[in-house]
Computed example of a mutant assay.
Amino acid sequence: MKRTLVVTNDFPPRTGGIQSFVHGLVSRLPPDSVVVYAPDWPGCADFDLRQPYPVVRHPTSLMLPTPAVARRAAGLIAEFGCDTVVFGAAAPLGLLAPRVRAAGADRVVMVTHGHEAAWAGFPAGRRLLARIGAHADVVTYLGEYTRRRLAGAIPEGRLVRLAPGVDTAVFHPGADGARVRAVLGLGERPVVVCLSRLVPRKGQDTLLRAWPAVLRDVPRAVLLIVGGGPYRRKLERLARPLGGSVRMTGPVPEAELPGHLAAGDVFAMPCRTRLGGADVEGLGIVYLEASASGLPVVAGASGGAPDAVRHGETGLVVDGRSPREVAAALSGLLRDPVRARAMGERGREWVAREWSWDLVASRFAGLLEPA
């Protein structure tokens, strides 16, 4: 049987969008056809025991394209008889492609995310991506934005779209939202929910700066911010003057994320591009999860985020740097629940039709086969 080695820095139990994407891809392959090589992470021993395929851990929490990592990957190719190698993120581990080919890999597939698109905006980054792509059979991209960015470094013939999938059986309008509302004491108040890591790019600070204007239009509204991260203290300072109209839950278990989304009436994450293009949103899978949950979404116009929203149909794309524009979008949806529900219904239909994991898994399996 053909076997695939997945070499990735991004894998659970470490949390994040890329980790969920790579794990979702791996989990939909036949268990005896895949081996994962990933870094050590707290809790990985218990997690790995629950997986039906082998997971080999590097002794540190980060893997770089060093001789030691190359030797270990080559050893796994020989030990498990792997003929295909997938790099869970093309940069930087894709630099190992010549070594894995020399070790016996006939096919190399590289998955890209937002950071590769950001690298492509700088001359040194484009040169590095060109080196990586020169040794790949396939380089995937998330959407039209990332395709355009990568096209300057990767030959068009090697670029193939592969975006994350959404499990609409997990993310759906009835996913325990009533219980979350009861636990948080939200009652029947209108709720805008933002679920994401608390980092500057995601735009939670813009939401907080926009919130007084929203309250003038919808006085009973609540802003529910779900997630943890290094920006939390600053956001808590911004939220303090807003009193009980803002709830910050901190991190919540993965199993409770669908319920927190379903507790909202509108989803908002007004992301923005930062650091001269070095910090950019690749796609924003959470927008699609919110759509699957039946919510209209308000997304920032950063990078590939607009690829996850049909502006005016499933939600609104706004300038994530403008509290005034964000407030107008939120107030408009909260004051017109019929329009908001219609957007949410169209969003769920769109995700079920075009973003299902079955479709993504079929595409991924096809990429592992020789052309």
Rank of each mutant, 00 (worst) to 15 (best):
M1S: 10
L5G: 01
T8D: 10
D10F: 10
R14Y: 09
R14T: 06
S20I: 10
H23A: 12
L25S: 04
L25C: 07
L25G: 04
V26M: 12
S27E: 13
L29G: 15
P30Q: 14
P30F: 15
D32H: 13
V34W: 00
V35D: 03
W41K: 11
C44G: 10
A45E: 14
F47T: 10
L49H: 10
R50D: 10
P54Q: 12
L64M: 13
P65G: 12
T66A: 15
A70L: 08
R72P: 09
A73W: 05
A74R: 04
A74N: 04
A74G: 09
L76I: 11
G81Y: 15
C82G: 08
T84E: 02
V85G: 01
F87C: 08
A90P: 07
A90M: 13
G94R: 00
G94D: 00
L96I: 03
R99W: 10
R101I: 01
R101C: 03
V111Q: 01
W119G: 05
F122Y: 10
P123H: 12
L128R: 00
R131V: 09
I132S: 00
H135K: 00
D137N: 01
V138Y: 10
Y141T: 06
G143T: 05
Y145F: 13
T146I: 15
R148M: 01
R148I: 00
L150Q: 00
L150C: 00
G152V: 04
A153L: 09
E156G: 02
E156V: 01
L162S: 04
G165N: 14
V166W: 14
V170H: 02
F171E: 03
H172M: 09
G174K: 07
G174H: 06
A175S: 05
D176Q: 15
R179A: 09
V180Q: 03
A182E: 00
A182P: 00
L184F: 10
L184K: 15
L186V: 06
R189F: 15
P190T: 07
V192Q: 08
V192H: 05
L195W: 11
S196I: 02
R197E: 05
W211E: 15
P212H: 11
L215T: 06
V218S: 03
A221H: 04
V222W: 10
V226L: 02
V226I: 06
G227C: 12
Y231A: 09
Y231V: 06
Y231C: 05
L238G: 12
A239E: 05
L242W: 02
S245N: 03
M248Y: 07
E254P: 07
E256V: 03
P258R: 01
L261S: 07
A262C: 10
G264F: 05
V266C: 02
P270D: 08
P270C: 04
C271A: 15
G277N: 07
G284L: 02
I285D: 02
S291V: 06
G294T: 12
L295N: 13
L295Y: 08
V298N: 02
V298A: 08
A299E: 04
S302E: 12
G304T: 08
V317G: 00
V318D: 07
S331E: 00
G332S: 09
P337E: 11
V338C: 13
R339K: 14
A340P: 14
G344C: 05
G347Y: 01
R348H: 03
E349L: 05
W350R: 04
R353G: 00
D358F: 09
A361L: 07
R363M: 13
G366Q: 13
L367M: 03
